[in-house]
């Protein structure tokens, strides 16, 4: 303790602010999920598990929203990690010229506001006037044209596609940073030993990239479970309820003034994220000897 430069009480200011504005509201949210808090009445009554019963009742759509959220999360994790890894390896080892330019171009969608990406893609994916279908028609591939965002069977896939396009650059940058920490000597030694490129990737790159991959998976997991804006802008949860996720439902509940059910839904997600996050971190982080 003696080698500390500042005394412990220096953290009190930050700690109090953190407790007051982050921890306390979090717990209050969980507490409110057991009440009938709403915009129509000034009284807040304790209702026990009623809100949770509503959420998990088979008559409501909430279970579907949870399923959609998981489907979105799993698919974006897989796609962003695979494509991000491919691009990272390509730009770290494969491409020799203009690498910085490519990195910037791939990273660019990350800095665009989601609402802009949403509006642009809504126009690109419009079945009648959109760029994508126009392109297919112009090259005679009419059979590939789709009603991207309004066909119930592919709307969610289209959203996942757009989200992957927007988010993959971020993942790529983290993985490039991870790749650059791997010493070149390992590859040289493996090459001398006659390891194939795939063997080098499998036995050097992947194991040494696990910390970066862990970070990427956790970031994608939390992003996926909390997804809202891209879905809200692209489909608004439609067609019907096919792309509604937990947070579009929370938004809906709040705008209807049913704050109790809204907070219950976000509490469910909070617990889910905490538990999942904990296990994933434990599973992916090698035990420190």
């Amino acid at each position: 303790m003696k080698n500390k430069i500042y005394p412990f009480y220096f953290t009190f200011g930050a700690l109090i602010l953190y407790l007051l504005f982050v921890v306390l509201p979090g717990f209050m949210g969980i507490a409110y999920s057991f009440t009938d808090w709403n915009s129509y009445s000034t009284k807040v009554n304790f209702v026990g598990l009623d809100n949770f019963r509503t959420i998990f009742s088979s008559e409501e759509n909430y279970l579907d929203y949870i399923r959609h959220t998981l489907f979105f999360t799993v698919n974006t994790i897989i796609l962003k990690t695979l494509i991000g890894l491919f691009l990272a390896v390509l730009l770290n080892h494969g491409v020799r010229r203009l690498t910085h330019l490519y990195r910037v171009i791939i990273y660019l969608p990350v800095v665009l506001p989601t609402i802009v990406v949403g509006l642009v893609f809504k126009s690109i994916l419009n079945p009648r006037t959109g760029l994508l279908n126009e392109f297919f028609r112009s090259v005679g591939l009419d059979s590939l044209t789709r009603k991207w965002l309004v066909d119930p069977d592919i709307a969610m896939l289209s959203v996942i596609g757009v989200d992957t396009w927007k988010g993959v650059g971020y993942i790529m940058v983290i993985l490039i940073a991870g790749l650059q920490t791997i010493p070149k000597e390992y590859y040289e030694a493996a090459e001398i030993d006659g390891a194939s490129p795939f063997g080098r990737f499998r036995h050097i790159t992947l194991p040494l990239l696990v910390p970066a991959l862990t970070v990427v998976t956790i970031l994608n997991l939390f992003y996926g479970l909390r997804v809202f804006d891209i879905i809200y802008v692209l489909t608004g949860g439609g067609p019907g309820y096919r792309t509604d996720v937990v947070f579009t439902a929370v938004f809906d509940e709040f705008s209807k003034g049913r704050y109790g059910v809204g907070t219950a839904l976000s509490s469910v997600l909070f617990i889910f994220m905490t538990v999942f996050g904990f296990f994933i971190v434990r599973k992916l982080t090698p035990a420190e000897a």
């Binding site: 439609g238 067609p239 019907g240 309820y241 096919r242």
Partner: peptide
């Protein structure tokens, strides 16, 4: 939203 869900 219900009506669209009905249509599809």
């Amino acid at each position: 939203q219900d009506l669209v869900a009905m249509l599809i």
